[in-house]
Computed example of a mutant assay.
Amino acid sequence: MALGNIFNFFVPKDKKFFPLFEQAGSNLIEMAKVLNEAVNTTDEVKRKELTKRIEDLEHRGDDITHQIHLELGKNFITPFDREDIHSLASSLDDVADYIHGASNRMDMYKVTQPTQAMKELAELLVEATEHVAKAVYELKDIKNIRNITDSCVRINSVENKADYIFEKAVAELFEFEKDAIILIKHKEVLSSMETATDKCEDVSNVLESILVKNA
């Protein structure tokens, strides 16, 4: 093994892992913004284009996650525990999966008139992913405990709001919606959106665990 390769093997990989995590965070923000645009447009052709855009971004997120896992296999020294790197990558990927799931269900179930609750949840997802991305960005300086913790608190607050909107919307569906098919379709879309905010909270929990171990 060449001397340069030996040196690269033992140098902490903050120049590899953190940029990938930042890319994942930025990708989530873009996915959430596109979903928010999709639920607020009345143009069906435009919504189809936005749905395709979200699918493309989800594939990009998969590629980023795969690259993080490849780096874990290639590198001996990591900036923090390997298990935490894996957990963080997986939790970020889960957020992308459920944003994509919400978009996909809207398309497949032909939900042409997104409800007010869907619009509110989509807006909260933008807020949650922005806090996720900020916390992940701050992670490269592990001593920024206050900044990371503040973002985690905000993520949890957004998730609580999403829970309330989801539960209220489902209750109203059961009370007022007489068409069982529409009820099921709307509940499935709302569930995917609300679960996406849950997954943002999972990211927050992983970040807090990393802080406890490394700060």
Rank of each mutant, 00 (worst) to 15 (best):
D56H: 08
E123K: 13
N160W: 04
I29S: 06
A133E: 03
H69R: 14
Y164K: 10
R154P: 02
Y137P: 00
K213S: 08
P79C: 10
T149V: 03
I64S: 01
T112M: 14
N40K: 12
E159T: 00
N5G: 15
K110T: 11
N156S: 13
D94M: 11
S204R: 00
S204V: 00
I210N: 01
S204N: 05
P79Y: 06
V153Q: 05
V206H: 00
H59M: 13
D94F: 09
V126K: 06
E194C: 09
I165C: 01
A32V: 05
V212N: 04
A162F: 01
A89V: 08
E138H: 11
S91L: 02
E201D: 15
Q67R: 15
F18Y: 15
N40V: 07
D93G: 10
I181R: 12
R105E: 13
N36P: 05
L72F: 09
I145F: 09
I54M: 08
M108R: 13
K134T: 05
G61F: 01
D84F: 04
L20S: 14
K199R: 15
G25C: 06
V111F: 06
K33A: 10
K140H: 11
T42F: 08
D62G: 10
N5F: 12
A38S: 14
N40Q: 10
T129Q: 03
H131N: 00
M108L: 15
L124I: 03
A38E: 10
F80Q: 00
D141N: 13
R53H: 14
N156K: 11
V34W: 02
L70D: 13
R82G: 05
S151C: 14
D97M: 10
H69D: 12
N144A: 11
I85A: 02
I6D: 10
F80V: 07
F174L: 15
D14F: 06
K134M: 03
D179V: 08
E123G: 13
L92S: 05
I6G: 08
I210R: 02
E44K: 14
S91F: 02
L3C: 05
I155C: 01
T149L: 02
E71C: 14
I6F: 12
K199N: 06
Y164A: 09
I148G: 00
K46I: 09
E194S: 13
V206P: 00
S204E: 02
N5W: 11
F10R: 04
E22C: 13
S151P: 03
L57N: 05
F9G: 12
A180S: 12
H186N: 12
D56T: 14
D150E: 11
V95Y: 04
